[in-house]
């Protein structure tokens, strides 16, 4: 650990904590999940970056959307995202979450994921290599340093828009809004 790091730790321990302790919820949304086991086990060893998989969204602060998102999966993704405690970071993994990828013309695949939940970064490729995940992690570190990984804040401030998009797709949602909707509409008005 160099000297800069120590000063950074003293200045903002919470931010450094968020950087170096990324607990990823492993939510197998698509074929991209096949790249995750080598990443977290002996071959590539994500633990040295402080990235370990955890079982529930309550304990996690990193959400990897691994692969295409069908309409049905999206519901679970939104639910899981809302259950994660903020600050939380989302990373879209592979081409599919970005623009539908090879399912660009499917009626049942979400083409633009960031209409429904905020995404802090994308990893392009089909499939991206495990190394790409590490590149993404280091990139996320710089984003956190510069306060640019602010997806959870955007979700908070634009919640009525996200919720509107979600309701447009699903009709009535089975759970109540995460944040009170009326306040936000009033604020904007």
């Amino acid at each position: 650990m160099d000297r800069n790091q120590i000063i950074k730790w003293l200045k903002a321990p919470a931010k450094m904590g968020h950087k170096y302790s990324l607990h990823a919820i492993y939510f197998c949304t698509g074929c991209g999940i096949i790249e995750v086991p080598p990443v977290i086990t002996a071959r590539w060893d994500a633990e040295r970056f402080g990235v370990i998989p955890v079982a529930t969204p309550r304990q996690a602060n990193l959400f990897l959307i691994t692969g295409y998102v069908s309409v049905k999966t999206l519901k679970a993704i939104i639910r899981t995202y809302e259950q994660m405690p903020s600050p939380k970071f989302t990373v879209g993994f592979g081409s599919c979450p970005i623009n539908g990828g090879m399912y660009w013309d499917s009626y049942n695949t979400i083409k633009r994921l960031d209409k429904y939940i905020p995404i802090d970064g994308w990893i392009a490729g089909c499939m991206p290599r495990p190394e790409a995940i590490f590149v993404a992690v280091t990139h996320l570190w710089t984003l956190i340093d510069k306060d640019m990984a602010d997806g959870y804040k955007r979700y908070r401030s634009n919640y009525h828009l996200y919720r509107a998009n979600q309701e447009q797709l699903f009709g009535e949602l089975e759970w109540p809004p995460l944040f009170p909707l009326e306040d936000q509409v009033e604020q904007i008005a």
Binding site: G17, H18, Y20, S21, A42, R48, G50, P85, S86, P87
Partner: peptide
């Protein structure tokens, strides 16, 4: 494997304390 730094649980605890629950 190489493994995390030995202080990793402390980092985790610091991170967890700063998170909303």
């Amino acid at each position: 494997r190489y493994g995390p730094p030995i202080t990793q649980p402390v980092i985790d605890v610091i991170r967890l304390f700063s998170q909303k629950s």
